[in-house]
């Protein structure tokens, strides 16, 4: 059995396909592409496949990841001899490349596998290794809240200026609701970097994953609330953010150590040995 991590993008109308449906979509892709994926044991076997981190509804992405456990690289739609022939022509990285091609040939145009790598034995799962994400965020003019947000930022010298002041604050305290309780969280140390362009598009690298996750909607609401707390009460604004904020994930990162310091690397680092 081999563990393979794939990277994929999600664009176009399929951005509205929710996380659970996307998982079902990939299960069907495996069968359409004849991928020899492994199944769990037991009562109702399921494909061994896990996804890094759900995207917010309606978001696009160039940095999605999933881990697949494969029985083999063979194409189960083909006979043994056909597979043997195919194998002779392929080796190492080519097997990965052919896996990606097979998946892409049966995928919807909006979803594309862009990279794949063989995971080492004992490598941490995609789901648990997520440490940060880079997002591209823009307020939608067609949404009332989005338009108000754009106006408010423009009225205070533009997104760039507001963002600069926002990041200079000592603390960025927000009230975060978890299932059990509400607590105050300081977003400041969770935001690695953020910048805005002249059109008000914000690119932000923030903590993600199971511990210190910052959702784009919370970040955007906190920014607006910072700009005008009366006009944008935090919790309400965050709740309405789904239709007001256009979200794109550029990359998902894991934390690694390099020369004694913590660095963020894409979930398939550029230096991975067995990689497409």
């Amino acid at each position: 059995m081999t563990k393979v991590r794939i990277k994929f993008s999600k664009h176009g109308p399929v951005r509205f396909v929710g996380h659970l449906d996307l998982m079902r979509y990939f299960q069907k892709v495996m069968r359409r592409a004849g991928v020899d994926i492994a199944y769990s044991e037991g009562y109702s076997p399921h494909q061994l496949m896990s996804f890094a981190q759900p995207l917010p509804a309606g978001a696009t992405s160039d940095g999605e990841y999933a881990d697949l456990t494969l029985q083999s690289f063979r194409d189960i739609r083909l006979s043994e001899s056909q597979n043997a022939n195919a194998k002779e022509e392929l080796s190492g990285e080519d097997t990965l490349k052919s896996l990606c091609l097979r998946m892409n040939s049966v995928m919807h145009e909006g979803i594309t596998v862009t990279d794949a790598a063989v995971l080492e034995q004992g490598a941490e799962k995609a789901m648990t290794s997520v440490a940060a994400c880079r997002w591209r965020l823009a307020f939608r003019a067609e949404d009332p809240l989005g338009q108000r947000a754009k106006d408010a930022l423009a009225g205070q010298g533009g997104a760039k200026a507001v963002l600069t002041r926002f990041l200079q604050s000592e603390r960025i305290v927000v009230r975060k609701k978890t299932k059990k309780a509400e607590k105050d969280v300081d977003l400041k140390p969770l935001i690695h970097e953020a910048l805005a362009d002249a059109d008000g598009v914000i690119r932000v690298l923030m903590k993600a994953g199971s511990v210190d996750n910052v959702r784009p909607a919370l970040f955007a609401a906190a920014l607006l609330s910072f700009a005008d707390a009366a006009a944008f009460p935090l919790q309400e604004t965050e709740q309405q953010m789904i239709s007001a904020l256009q979200v794109h994930r550029e990359e998902t990162y894991l934390a690694a150590e390099e020369e004694g310091r913590e660095v963020l690397l894409p979930l398939i680092p550029a230096t991975t040995p067995t990689r497409v």
């Binding site: 399929v14 509205f16 449906d21 509804a57 309606g58 939608r140 239709s243």
Partner: peptide, 22 residues
């Protein structure tokens, strides 16, 4: 799409209205 993102995100199961299925 006939609907804006904001409109689609305001209804239940927007996937019902976007076509583009396999």
């Amino acid at each position: 799409l006939a609907l804006t993102d904001a409109q689609l995100l305001s209804v239940e199961k927007p996937e019902r209205y976007i076509g583009n299925e396999v």
